[in-house]
């Protein structure tokens, strides 16, 4: 995004009708280079002062790159095949996922289960809190102003933009992840998946289903 576009976005920040899309503020090529220069300078100062050891940043990057959707999918698949685990997961998410060798760095994990009557979905209106230790980094749209602003006010319209129309009578629970908890949606196990093993089930589960903007489709 160029500087010119920045100005344009700002001037029209309340005019959401002009192209129907709330701009996502991202850096253009020059901005990315500037960001790289800034973070390199910061890192150099911190290493010089002995606050961070050389190589430590690289190692931390490897650590935060490791978690991803596969961890969330593993948790959900286990909950689908093991009712006792599911019960423990809903009672205390952090302890239950530790049984699978998954560590939650955030304070606590709340797992919210979808069923025939209830659909859950997750947002963070104040910043962009997200269960990074089990889903990795949040998608760009999750940190967008439009998602942060609208999810708590018109959840059904937001879900429709993601292509999800809930059946009649299904209530929506929106979770604003604003403080010390992080949230994972436990989607419903799809029809036709009865014969599948845990690994195959895990393969059906997407990030968006665990944020709650999608559901796991029926298995052909």
């Amino acid at each position: 995004m160029s500087d010119q576009e920045h100005t344009h976005d700002h001037a029209h920040s309340h005019d959401h009708a002009h192209d129907g899309h709330e701009p996502l503020v991202v850096e253009d090529e020059a901005g990315n280079i500037e960001g790289q220069i800034l973070v390199d300078a910061l890192q150099t100062l911190l290493v010089e002062r002995g606050l961070v050891f050389p190589g430590e940043v690289r190692r931390e990057i490897e650590r935060i790159e490791a978690p991803g959707v596969h961890l969330g999918a593993k948790i959900v698949a286990r909950a689908w095949v093991d009712d006792d685990f599911r019960t423990r997961l809903l009672a205390d998410g952090k302890s239950a996922v530790a049984e699978l060798g998954i560590g939650v760095g955030e304070a606590q994990l709340i797992v919210v289960a979808n069923d025939a009557d209830t659909h859950n979905f997750v947002c963070c209106t104040l910043c962009s809190c997200y269960p990074r230790s089990i889903l990795g980094q949040p998608p760009a749209w999750y940190i967008s102003k439009a998602y942060r602003a609208r999810a708590v006010r018109e959840p059904r319209a937001v879900l429709e933009e993601f292509g999800l129309v809930l059946p009649d009578g299904v209530r929506v629970l929106v979770h604003d992840s604003n403080a010390d908890m992080r949230y994972l949606v436990l989607p419903q196990r799809p029809k036709g998946s009865e014969g599948l093993g845990e690994d195959q089930l895990a393969g059906l589960i997407t990030r968006d289903c665990m944020i709650g903007v999608s559901v796991v489709g029926p298995v052909a």
Binding site: H16, L24, D40, V57, K145
Partner: peptide, 28 residues
Amino acid sequence: HDIGGNAAGAIPIVELPWLQWEKQVEAI
């Protein structure tokens, strides 16, 4: 920053790569 409930346009449903400098910011 407290924008919950404000009017806003369509959600920009895009996926973007996580860049090196962004990872460095998060790691530090």
